[in-house]
Nucleic acid binder design. Structure first.
Length: 335
DNA sequence: CGTGTTTGACCAGCGC
DNA sequence: GCGCTGGTCAAACACG
């Protein structure tokens, strides 16, 4: 794995914000855009209505940091604290609804990798500053699950370039799936964000990436970079992200320098356990089905600005099959 | 040497 | 209580 070779990225938020967002009798929940953005903001994907229709710089430690909700570290982390402690506690409560232990408040007891060095004393910037663990404590520690959300993506590439550096700390075979699940932890010593990456057993082209926790720092890789560090809020119904090839990406996708263009219909789901095809746990999903196409690098700018019309929400056949009842009728084939 | 991956072992939670 | 499963640890290893 090498997230170090971060791709250039452009994220375009497309569209209107009129999706019906409420719970229904099927147990599938849709959220207001406020809540939706809150979810995103919980993970430091802070997209605000004010950001619509304007290009926003992306954080890479430069002056672009503020735009998309990548404020400076302190501010961001304070916001993160606030978000978790007060602003929208129910927002992701579904992710903590299973197992009594999950009702525990978000705390620093999430185990930290020994390879990350001694945990630094909390500066207030991280919501979950790792404690200095001793081995016994580690083993005996109760796992505390932080808010999570997952991308359901369609891609040949397992590991999405998200601007953060990850260290793989485990891999497990998944029951009823030929594909293993990989566990990653943010390499920032003060950051306890983790993510799992697995392929859908039903559709191997579908990647399920589950994030847990919040980053308390900037993207560390200059993400995106080289002239594509622009976030366009274009249509709130869709996020598109184009990632230009780097050695890593190219290596994963093929020999030639590649650029991929992603479209993320923004659909948020809370899946009851028995309807959850991806996990045994009851959690929220932000299902960003994206359809990947490879485009030439020099086309990225054009492509990312070439969405004059809101992209209709129309699940690809594979997505339809995969998601099934996750998407209520009124949300399907929206155009 | 620093960083990241692999992988078998261990642990906790859950269902029966 | 037992077995299964998911999640994590940590030593060994690979690589630049």
């Amino acid at each position: 794995m090498d997230d170090g070779d971060q791709s250039d990225s452009t994220i375009v938020f497309a569209g209107d914000s009129s999706w019906a967002l409420r719970s229904d009798s099927d147990g599938v929940y849709f959220f207001t855009n406020h809540r939706e953005s809150s979810i995103l903001s919980e993970f430091n994907w802070n997209l605000h209505p004010d950001d619509q229709n304007r290009n926003i710089g992306f954080c890479d430690g430069s002056d672009l940091a503020g735009g998309l909700g990548f404020p400076d570290v302190d501010n961001k982390c304070n916001n993160s604290n606030n978000a978790l402690q007060s602003s929208d506690p129910p927002l992701l409560v579904g992710s903590e609804s299973k197992a009594g232990g999950n009702t525990a408040p978000i705390n620093p007891s999430v185990s930290s990798s020994s390879s990350e060095g001694p945990p630094e004393k909390s500066t207030g910037s991280c919501i979950t500053p790792p404690e200095k663990p001793n081995k016994v404590r580690k083993r005996g520690q109760k796992r505390v699950q932080q808010p999570r959300f997952a991308f359901v993506t369609k891609s040949e590439v397992d590991h999405l370039q998200d601007g953060y550096r990850w260290r793989k700390y485990g891999q497990k075979a998944v029951k009823n799936s030929p594909f293993p699940r990989s566990y990653y932890r943010c390499t920032n010593s003060r950051c306890t964000v983790k993510k799992r990456v697995e392929r859908s057993s039903e559709d191997p082209t579908v990647i399920i990436t589950t994030y847990e926790g919040q980053h308390c720092h900037h993207t560390v890789l200059g993400f995106p970079r080289s002239g594509h560090g622009v976030i366009n809020i274009h249509d709130q119904n869709f996020i598109t992200s184009s990632t230009s090839g780097t050695s890593t990406t190219a290596g994963q996708l093929g020999a030639a320098p590649l650029v991929s263009q992603f479209y993320y219909p923004k659909v948020l789901h809370e899946l009851p356990k028995d309807q959850n095809p991806f996990s045994t746990t009851h959690e929220y999903y932000s299902t960003h089905h994206y359809h990947q196409q490879i485009i030439p690098h020099h086309e990225v700018g054009k492509i990312s600005h070439a969405f004059p019309e809101p992209i209709p929400l129309k699940l690809a056949p594979t997505d339809e099959g995969l998601l099934g009842d996750m998407v209520p009728p009124n949300m399907r084939n929206r155009s």
